[in-house]
Nucleic acid binder design. Structure first.
Length: 481
RNA sequence: GACCCUAUCAUCUAGUGGUUAGGAUACAACCCUCUCAAGGUUGGUACACGGGUUCGAAUCCCGUUAGGGUCGCCA
């Protein structure tokens, strides 16, 4: 049997991390077995329609490398792949399900129901829908429909039975049917609800593996009842635990948490995000932590999926992102860093060398901004900064070092390359009978005004160039008196 | 409230009856070093609780507690 899995987002205009992980697992499960990955757009909620939201889905999947084999933009043998274009199908199968006694027509209006609910609430009673339409004869119901009455189709459930299903990660689950709600399958506007559309589409599209969040675990028995009523094969279920923001809250855009787009904007690499979320809820049973998409496809297995929720740990993502950055070629890193340089640096400087200095020091690309701001403008700093116990240096030493450095750096040759600068500066400690740190700490401070910088005096001087370096040294000499 | 699900370091997790409870992130220390990183070495921290079953339970069973989910003409 060829595995067919599907990603079925309702387009909201952004991709949240939980959805992306679901899509990833769906893709990996299919591709691991050489199967197909199908994209289906679930746009049955007319009230939540967002312009352009479908494009975000396409762009994200493409960026991440989850290539779907069938979908609205690609076609396929089981289309249409947009639910709003499948309306006649749902109606047809709803009627069929009524014939099969798996559903019934209901003429109660939403308002009526709401009234009943509120009345029950007022009395402090738990609301139980009595569903008068359930007892209508089929002839009578069809007559009322013919007369143009608004109606919905509700699932019909035998309350005296039990329903059991197997989930590949949670195992065997059994519930008593009386705890199941006879929910609406077809709305009065003719659109199906998720509960119905999913069953119909998954069956019609030959989906073999249904992979989704575990919030659907409790409604799965209802889907099975429909499959059974239709006499259809039940798919393999794989329910995924949620990704949490903390111990209590799910990760969600609504809580102000980062979406895939947000993470990208912050300077996280697509590959790193994918790598991280693959590991959030799945373990490869080895100690490997860095996986390319090819490796994920090769190694992914359902047995490694966890049952317990996982908290999204941005620190670990940062680390993984840093690993990816350090593994990049200098050219690639430079390309990624360029937009950030443009934002933060007006002065002209050797950006290639800057990239060389920065690459091992950056975990998230947006960190670049804070790392390079001193190039444009010398920050204010306290004289105290020249006193450094560990470097065994202080103001007195600084007063001696800075003028010597100023003189040394009059020589243009030092600015020809990072190596030349290093060589030049390293002559100072010996000449002055001082330790490296005693000489270089003051110079670096004078050039950067910062407690910490990426690179040392050598890098700062070389990158600033002769003119600016000399100017800053002069200023510092004035400052220390 | 009813039903379903979950429970190992701060975090992600390994572990499927016998382990000094392993790894990674984070944290700390040290080394390296012109600061900061990177790299290297080392370290501390966990089986929610209570009962069983068993010669022996993180592992099996029951309960408690805690948390999550579902109960929409949302998905």
């Amino acid at each position: 049997m060829t595995i067919r899995s599907r990603f079925a987002p309702s387009p909201t205009g952004y991709m949240h991390i939980g959805n992306l992980r679901t899509a990833l697992y769906e893709y990996l499960i299919a591709k691991n077995a050489g199967g197909s990955f199908i994209l289906r757009i679930e746009d049955t909620d007319q009230e939540r329609f967002v312009e352009g939201a479908v494009d975000v889905v396409y762009e994200t999947l493409k960026d991440v490398g989850l290539i779907h084999d069938e979908g609205p933009d690609k076609g396929g043998a089981f289309g249409p792949y947009i639910q709003s274009e499948r309306l006649p199908l749902y109606k047809e199968y709803a009627d069929k399900l009524v014939d099969l006694k798996g559903a019934h027509y209901c003429f109660c209006s939403a308002e009526e129901l709401e009234e009943k609910k509120q009345a029950a609430e007022k009395q402090g009673k738990a609301f139980k829908f009595d569903d008068p339409c359930k007892h209508l004869s089929l002839e009578e119901a069809r007559e009322r429909i013919k007369n143009g009455e608004k109606y919905t189709v509700r699932q019909t459930i035998d309350p005296f039975k039990k329903t059991t299903f197997i989930d590949e990660v949670y195992g065997r689950i059994t519930v008593e049917n009386k705890t199941l709600d006879e929910g609406i399958l077809l709305k009065s506007d003719g659109y199906p609800t998720y509960n119905f559309a999913n069953v119909i589409d998954d069956h019609l599209m030959n989906i073999t593996h249904v992979i989704r969040g575990n919030e659907y675990l409790s409604s799965t028995p209802k889907y099975n009842l429909m499959y059974e009523a239709f006499g259809w094969n039940i798919p393999t279920y794989i329910h995924l635990p949620p990704i949490m923001k903390d111990a209590h809250n799910k990760l969600s855009k609504r809580n102000g948490d980062a979406s895939f787009q947000d993470l990208k904007a912050k300077g996280y690499l697509t590959e790193a995000i994918v790598n991280y979320i693959a590991l959030l809820g799945w373990n490869p049973k080895t100690e490997q932590e860095i996986f390319s998409m090819e490796e994920l496809i090769k190694n992914f297995n359902i047995q490694g999926i966890n049952k317990a929720p996982a908290i999204f740990d941005i620190e670990k993502l940062k680390w993984i992102n840093g690993v990816y950055i350090r593994n990049m070629s200098l050219e690639d890193f430079h390309k990624k860093a360029l937009p950030y340089y443009e934002k933060a640096i007006k002065r002209k400087l050797d950006l290639e060398t800057l990239s060389k200095v920065l690459q091992p020091r950056v975990n998230v690309l947006s960190e670049i901004i804070d790392l390079v701001d001193f190039f444009d403008e010398m920050p204010d700093y306290d004289l105290e900064m020249y006193c450094h116990k560990k470097m065994k240096t202080d103001l007195d030493i600084t007063r001696k070092v800075l003028p010597v450095a100023l003189e040394l750096l009059q020589d243009k040759k030092a600015f020809e390359s990072l190596e030349a600068m290093h060589e030049a500066l390293m002559t100072l400690p010996e000449k002055m009978g001082l330790k490296n740190g005693q000489v270089l700490w003051p110079i670096r401070t004078a050039l950067t005004g910062k407690q910490f910088t990426a690179g040392g005096a050598t890098e700062a001087a070389y990158l600033l160039g002769q003119e600016e370096t000399l100017a800053r040294l002069k200023k510092a000499i004035e400052k220390v008196g």
